[in-house]
Design a protein around this nucleic acid. Structure first.
Ligand code: FES
Ligand code: FES
Lengths: 143, 143
DNA sequence: TATATTTAAGAATAAAGAGTCTTAATTCTT
DNA sequence: AAGAATTAAGACTCTTTATTCTTAAATATA
């Protein structure tokens, strides 16, 4: 459902929120190390997050990235949209051209419900909430 | 979420149910024509459905495929499992190694709910039900 | 038996996605 | 001003998935 790039981007955003939030600038290299992933791959995706207005970036020594908005104002759906786009929420599960209540496929009515619930969850879940939950549940950010 | 192969396979199974069910043998060529898709691609996926025990196949003139079980006994999840496998339902949305209530990631608890609902829907929805719904709603099988 | 028809199996090609690297631009520090 | 650190951009390779094709095996029919 989510691409590898998108999954990693969400993890990265969670870590950036946890480690620096809106204030502190975190080098992408640090994020890659903490997530135990490829700097190259991560950096490319981070560029998309910058372009989407979710991160501010700073070049040079002491450079890096930080949140461009308050953690409570960045929702999971924003990250998904920036990296993968929203086709998942707009296209037919069976691959038909149209997907709407007016032109439903054989399982549209059942599926649309589930899909809407996922969209709702992604739209309502903010980075702030995730990081707070993690601390509450004593889950390591990195895992 | 579902691969192109899986989406097409579900459509094919719906058509086979509608056109022949457990009785009549339908040539794969006919299915491909009706679905307006590549015979080659469809035929390869149909082979997997045969191996998974969802279809019987018959070679030679008058050959083709038919359902190997009653339409009410073939669920969407069976088709998904045969073509894509069940990783979607078993792996972490954020790409962590483990995915369980014991080793949850930052959004496991929220996601597990949604995922379970989808699994339930796929497990409970049979080809019989889909085809009946279509007839009831006057939706063309092919669309 | 010969022929035509159809699925089975797997090779070959094309496209998309994942992952890596190189170079340029920016900016901090000395 | 010079050098080092860091992101930006895009080319490049590798892997997986999608798609097409070829050949073999089976079977109905004449
Ligand atoms: S038309 Fe198929 S899911 Fe909406
Ligand atoms: S651990 Fe991430 S969804 Fe289950």
């Amino acid at each position: 459902m989510l691409s590898a790039a998108c999954k990693e981007s969400i993890r990265a955003m969670i870590y950036i929120t946890h480690a620096g939030g809106e204030r502190k600038i975190i080098p992408v290299k640090d994020v890659a190390e903490k997530l135990d992933t490829s700097f190259y791959f991560l950096a490319k995706n981070v560029q998309k997050l910058v372009k989407a207005g979710l991160l501010f970036s700073y070049k040079g020594p002491k450079g890096g990235v930080k949140l461009a908005k308050k953690p409570e104002d960045i929702k999971l759906i924003d990250i998904v949209q920036a990296i993968d786009g929203l086709e998942f929420f707009e296209t037919c599960l069976l691959g038909f051209k149209e997907c709407s209540d007016e032109h439903p496929c054989a399982i549209h009515h059942k599926w649309a419900d589930k899909r809407r619930a996922i969209y709702k969850m992604f739209s309502e879940t903010s980075l702030k909430e995730i990081v707070e939950d993690m601390e509450k549940l004593c889950i390591d950010v990195i895992f």
